[in-house]
């Protein structure tokens, strides 16, 4: 039950994008179409789960015993950067269409705040190993949920008569605001 709550909390109640503002670059950049949005969401979920696993190990097995907690930013980011670059190379090799669809945002997963944020939050909340992984997975699922909903809305908005200055980022932000308003309904769920 506890794990379920952690998952729901990370996925909906404290949705990464809509309440912590993490992972906004890809959220804005890759939500124009459903297909890429789904792949981005899945890629991020994958990286997030992996990150949660690896950073938990590094933090608790290396940094804490050596009393090097102050190195967390540097070491986490190093781990994440390498991990993402590996994923990038892998995707590029395996699926060119996927690589093309994600475009420059794959390297930007590195700088996806959601991922480092995830690691930092995980440490802050003092989750144990399994909880950490669930937390990472839930956060990824929440990110995927938000970005796919957003992509659906934006596909529809492409046919809409949005006022010129609001086209693109403006209306995306406003839509995100409305979504955030809607997600407030989940408050108190846990």
């Amino acid at each position: 039950m506890n794990l379920l709550l952690i998952f729901i909390s990370a996925a909906v109640v404290n949705n990464y994008v809509l309440t912590y503002f993490l992972g906004l670059c890809p959220f804005v950049g890759v939500s124009k179409k459903i297909g890429p949005a789904v792949s981005m969401g899945l890629a991020t979920t994958f990286v997030m789960t992996m990150t949660a696993t690896v950073t938990w190990l590094i933090y608790h097995l290396i940094l804490v015993p050596l009393k090097l907690e102050f190195l967390q930013i540097v070491s986490f980011i190093l781990v994440i950067a390498s991990l993402v670059q590996l994923v990038e190379m892998f995707v590029r090799k395996v699926s060119k269409p996927l690589y093309d669809a994600l475009g420059i945002y794959l390297p930007l997963i590195t700088t996806n705040c959601a991922i480092l944020g995830l690691a930092l939050f995980m440490v802050m909340k003092q989750y144990d190993f399994i909880e950490g992984i669930i937390f990472g997975f839930g956060a990824g699922a929440g990110f995927t949920l938000a970005i796919v909903i957003m992509a659906g809305i934006r596909t529809q908005l492409e046919l809409a008569d949005v006022p010129e200055p609001f086209k693109g980022a403006g209306i995306t932000m406003i839509t995100a605001g409305c979504l955030a308003l809607a997600f407030m309904g989940f408050a108190g769920l846990i």
């Binding site: 809509l18 309440t19 503002f21 006022p163 010129e164 200055p165 609001f166 086209k167 980022a169 403006g170 209306i171 995306t172 932000m173 406003i174 995100a176 605001g177 409305c178 955030a180 308003l181 407030m184």
Partner: peptide, 22 residues
């Protein structure tokens, strides 16, 4: 000062900036 307000205010600001630019 809640999350939705942040999105809405930024959206508004981006809109205004684009409008000024146009």
């Amino acid at each position: 000062i809640l999350p939705p307000g942040a999105f809405l205010a930024l959206g508004l600001m981006i809109g205004i900036a684009n409008w000024i630019n146009s």
